[in-house]
Amino acid sequence: MTTALSLVLQERPDGTRLLAASGEIDISNAADLAKALEGALEGAPEGSNGRVTLDLTAVDYLDSAGIAVLFDHADHLELAATPLLMPVLTVSGLGDLAPIRESD
């Protein structure tokens, strides 16, 4: 059974891309996240510095499969996360590879 995950890609006026995730990210849908990130990075405009902002502020759960996807794309990500996810992202070491901004 696949866990509910919504992924919405937006392009900002400055040319950067934002992928907003909501729900839970686990082994059942980590491939969907990977595919969405690859699509967002593939078509990123020149002005975006090749980075995509992944907004995790509406994500309630992130397991190791989701973290593995984030590591696979860390060189091209900026992350926005709530205090709930910050310990997971920090302990994993992801913050050493991708900027993480804490949001309320």
Rank of each mutant, 00 (worst) to 15 (best):
I25D: 01
I27D: 14
H76N: 14
Q10R: 01
T3S: 13
A74S: 08
A81I: 02
R12S: 10
S28R: 10
T90K: 09
S92K: 00
Y61A: 01
A4G: 03
L18K: 02
L94E: 06
R101M: 02
S64H: 13
L77N: 12
D26E: 10
A98F: 10
T82H: 04
Q10A: 01
L41S: 13
L41P: 05
L54G: 02
F71P: 03
A44R: 06
D72S: 13
L9V: 05
S48M: 13
L18H: 06
A21G: 05
V59P: 01
G43N: 14
D63S: 04
A36T: 10
P83A: 13
S22E: 15
H76E: 15
A98E: 09
R17V: 04
I67K: 00
V69S: 01
A40E: 06
Q10I: 00
D26Q: 06
A40V: 04
A68P: 00
P99E: 15
E102P: 02
E38N: 06
H73T: 07
N29W: 05
E24G: 02
E42S: 12
G93R: 04
L19V: 02
A21C: 07
P87C: 03
K35Q: 14
E42I: 03
D72K: 09
R12Y: 07
D32R: 08
L9Q: 08
L33E: 00
K35P: 00
